[in-house]
């Protein structure tokens, strides 16, 4: 196994362990150090990679139609979609109204533009 692949494996393991037991982070790190042994030099890289995985897994992108106060909406989204910690927002006027939410796994289409596209496809008989 090459170094990069090994670091990826350790990073994924660290991320999953911390996600399952966030309170036991000290114990998790102690175990990791013990397991790494002479490869302790990889630790910074493993932590950095785990952070990247965290950002990738927990981050979402929110596209909104207008520049309104979106704190309420972001709060409600975080409540509805568990596991999203960080939301980046971007204005997309083509949505007309509503929003689109894009995470690592899902794409929520909740805009008038998407409603119109759905309607158009229904008229064309594509669905």
């Amino acid at each position: 196994m090459n170094t990069e692949k090994e670091i990826s494996c350790w990073s994924r393991a660290l991320y999953l362990s911390l996600e399952e037991n966030p309170d036991n982070y000290e114990k998790i790190f102690a175990n990791l150090k013990a397991s790494l042994g002479k490869k302790i030099i990889y630790l910074p890289a493993i932590i950095k990679k785990a952070e990247m995985i965290y950002n990738k897994e927990k981050k979402a992108k929110l596209y909104i139609s207008h520049d309104f106060d979106k704190e309420d909406i972001i709060k409600k989204i975080k409540e509805k979609f568990k596991g999203i910690d960080k939301i980046e927002d971007e204005i997309d006027r083509d949505l007309l109204a509503g929003f689109r939410l894009k995470t690592k796994d899902i794409l929520v289409k909740a805009s008038l533009k998407d409603t119109l596209i759905k309607l158009k496809n229904k008229i064309y008989g594509y669905n």
Binding site: I64, H66, I73, L96, A97, A110, S111, L112, K113, L116
Partner: peptide, 22 residues
């Protein structure tokens, strides 16, 4: 329709619609 909607929906209305969708 898109053009009319774009012109007629402002930020307040947009927020209302977003909350409604949500």
């Amino acid at each position: 329709t898109e053009k009319l909607l774009k012109e007629s929906i402002d930020a307040t209305k947009g927020k209302e619609i977003s909350e409604d969708f949500l």
